[in-house]
Design a protein around this nucleic acid. Structure first.
Length: 137
RNA sequence: CCUGCGCACCGCUCCGUCGCUCCCCGCUGCAAGGUGGGGGGAGGAAAGUCCGGGCAGCAUAGGGCACCGUGCUUCCUAACGGGAAGGGGCGCCGCCGGGAACGGCGGCGCCACGGAAAGUGCCACAGAAAGGGAGGUUGCCUGCAGGCCGAAAGGCCCUAGGCUGAAGUUUUGGCAAGGCCCGCCUUCGCCAAGGCUUCGGCGGGUAAAAGUGAAAAGGUGGGCCCGCCUUCGCGCGGGAUAGCGCGCUUCGGCGUGUGAAAGUAAGAGCCCACCAGCCCGGGUGGCGACAUCCGGGGCUUGGUAAACCCCACGGGCUGAAAGACCAAAUAGGCUGGGGAUCCCGACUUGUCGGGGUGAAGGGCGGCCCGCCCGGUCCCAGCGGGUAGGUCGAUCGAUCCCGAUGGCGACAUCGGGACCAGAUAAAUGACGGGGACCCCGCAUUGGACGUGUUCCGCAGCGGGGAACAGAACCCGGCUUACAGGUGCGCAGGACCU
């Protein structure tokens, strides 16, 4: 109980997911992006319908990974990786007082393991925030 | 025991930490939500989207044509192009019968399996020729005798056909030369006619033999002997044999009854018998596909319908992005009220009444076009409709167990269970253990067949774990698949 009080839970609920084809298209077309190995991050500072500092979506194109099983596995790894770094990212955005929509794309042809995925996702997020969000407080 | 093939079934499991989604309950909050607890959460193919159905909307008097699909029978089913049980055909293997063609029985496998005898088309390559279809090549046989017309050339009859060239040889006759016994003989000589042999061209015939092809027009065996004639012909008669029937059998046959055949130059695809197939009629068995028996025809009618086509049966079209409902902002629509402005009328000269307002009016300007000014306002309600949301949407031809009926697919009855429901799309990430399989290392136990054999227990190290992710739901089909289990078949090794 004591640990629960101090350490924030590493949750990742539905309201923190970027949903709706119109918003996703807006991020994909007008957002600013950067690449990190097989991943690509596109994000945009914009108003979100939920009271949350960020929303995020993950995409794996069918033309690179034709089998649904492979696409699912890659999306799950990306989601898991982002879940673990999300709290730090959220506090930073709360400090800056802005809302950001993220869109992660996977552009590789073969699946990569979780360690690599985690490292790359984290680097990409840090780099994007460094560039576009003023450091809080 | 090993290997391969086929069919059926299974399709790793547990723990910890951190998460996701749906449902239920408690607390909290106006609500959104938060929080605590409990429960559910991918497959045998979820795949391909190839069939069928439910469900939904649209269309629809009835019928026909067109188009599409299906195609042995009966049954199962909500339905099917699915399934079950049968029938038939084909292929391979084994055994049996027959002189042969071929037939019977058994096993295994395969088959979209209505009609090719309604018509049309097509049948590559090869081959002379490929479907109303012949005699082409090599080879073989044959070209003998005659009549009539005509001046002749030639024509006609008869005939399967009624030729011709070269060389050699020979016979007869004549000529020439020579000889002598003088009317005969001889010749490396010449001419004419004829015969024979060989070779070639041309015509006729074509069985055995040879070729191509998937297929050359179903196949096998045989067609003997004697006699007769106003009629010599697919004539008539007699006999024999084959064949067929019956009986016996030592299965080798024997006995007995019946009993074939026609042609030609030679032959045959002509004739006879049988085998196989086909068609027609009838009997028996079967719900039926069909089977079987008897009689007749005397036909041989090739393949292809996944070519057109014919016949029978079925099909309205579109799919969950179907469809139903709620519904913001903005723009526009309609209705009502108010404001502003313009026009008209009335007079009490600033009020009232009526009407218009995507126009009136004013300016630039001779006029039209055009441009500019002015104004196009505010509020409420209604309806359509977009974003978004809810339903559809997860209790159903459902699953499990049992009983009964049925050869079976399956059906009926009884009891029990609730078992994914996401929506940029949940079912995961990381770590560790346990089974399983493979490889290596050593260690032991057992079996007799004592081997470079086979089987088993525990140990250490390393590796592997397939195909694949629900998207309205269900029944099938097809395809993919590591490893394992069971059954069947085939082959091999060893023992008895």
């Amino acid at each position: 109980m004591v640990t629960r009080m101090n350490v924030p839970r590493l949750t990742f609920g539905k309201h923190e997911r970027l949903r709706g084809s119109l918003r996703i298209r807006e991020v994909a077309t007008t957002g600013t992006g950067l690449s990190e190995a097989p991943f690509r991050l596109i994000a945009k500072v914009m108003d979100l319908p939920e009271a949350t500092p960020l929303q995020v979506a993950f995409a794996v194109p069918k033309r690179h990974m034709p089998r649904a099983v492979d696409r699912n596995r890659m999306k799950r790894r990306m989601r898991e990786a982002f879940r673990l770094i999300k709290p730090a990212c959220a506090t930073r955005l709360r400090g800056a007082g802005t809302q950001v929509a993220f869109l992660f794309l996977y552009q590789g042809r073969d699946a990569v393991d979780f360690a690599t995925t985690s490292r790359k996702i984290s680097r990409a997020t840090d780099r994007w925030l460094e560039k576009h969000v003023a450091p809080g407080q």
